[in-house]
Amino acid sequence: MNRWEPNARGRLEAAALDLYVERGFAQTTVAEIAKQAGLTERTYFRHFADKREVLFGGSEELAQLIAATIADQPESAAPIDAAAAAVEAMGDRLQPRRERAVRRQGVIAANPELQERELTKLASMATTIADALRERGTPSPTAGLAAETAIGVFKVAFERWTTAGTSSDLAQLIRDSFTDLKALLAEVSP
């Protein structure tokens, strides 16, 4: 094996997902992932802390996108609208990766340990949104509520997007879910 392989991270991610779908998460070892990618275990651990993390790459990139999108919103934007723009931007970023996302969600759904890690990732995104809203001057309780609401809407839209038979654009599903939320709130308003 060559010492410096191009796109080692991407190859490891693809190999892991293939093996997790084929064999299951618990039955797959890091050694098998590295071998399938044509790399060494040492290379694997240069990129990922453990065999779960290979499914959760890109979190830092999404956090930067969230913060930048919220910072770019007009000062007049309501906190929920700024948060909505951030999760829509996430949808745009994830759209080209739909096939991978569908396969990944199947692996996560079959493993409680991965479900827990997914919830941790979503909580981290909510924290990023709330922090970015606070940077704009949004009071803390309002920032937290807008962030948790936006992540809830994202989760619903993402589930619809990764469900078999859905071919919709993720950002559009996010917009539709925010519209549904507004309609739901209008029904309960005095």
Rank of each mutant, 00 (worst) to 15 (best):
R42E: 11
T127N: 10
G144C: 05
L133D: 11
E159I: 06
V153A: 01
V102N: 08
A31H: 05
A8N: 06
E113N: 03
R42L: 10
E99M: 08
I151K: 00
A31W: 03
R117D: 08
L19M: 01
E60L: 07
A110E: 07
E187W: 13
T179D: 10
Y20I: 05
Y20W: 07
G38N: 06
P6L: 12
E75T: 03
T28P: 00
A123M: 05
A49L: 13
A16W: 01
G10Y: 11
G58D: 15
A67N: 09
P190A: 15
M1R: 10
S140I: 07
E61W: 09
I80T: 09
Q36F: 02
T120V: 14
A183F: 05
A84G: 15
T43I: 08
E135P: 04
L94Q: 09
L19K: 02
L65W: 15
A85H: 04
L173C: 04
R93L: 12
V87M: 11
W4K: 03
L12M: 03
P139A: 13
E60T: 11
A123H: 01
K51T: 06
Q105P: 01
I174K: 02
A110T: 00
L184M: 09
D169K: 03
T138R: 10
P190E: 15
A110L: 05
E99R: 04
L119G: 15
A34L: 07
R93Y: 15
A183T: 01
A146H: 06
R46L: 11
S177E: 08
E118L: 11
A171P: 01
A126S: 15
A84S: 15
T28K: 04
T162L: 03
A86R: 00
T43M: 05
G57Q: 12
R3N: 02
E60I: 04
E41C: 02
E116P: 02
P141V: 03
E116G: 00
F178P: 01
A101R: 06
P74W: 00
A78E: 13
T28W: 01
K35E: 14
T120H: 11
A78C: 07
Q105D: 09
L133W: 12
S59C: 13
V102L: 12
L39V: 01
R93I: 07
E61N: 08
A71S: 13
E32M: 09
D50E: 11
R104H: 03
M1W: 09
G38C: 11
G57N: 13
R160S: 14
Q105Y: 03
A101C: 07
A37R: 00
L55E: 02
D72C: 05
I33V: 15
A89Y: 12
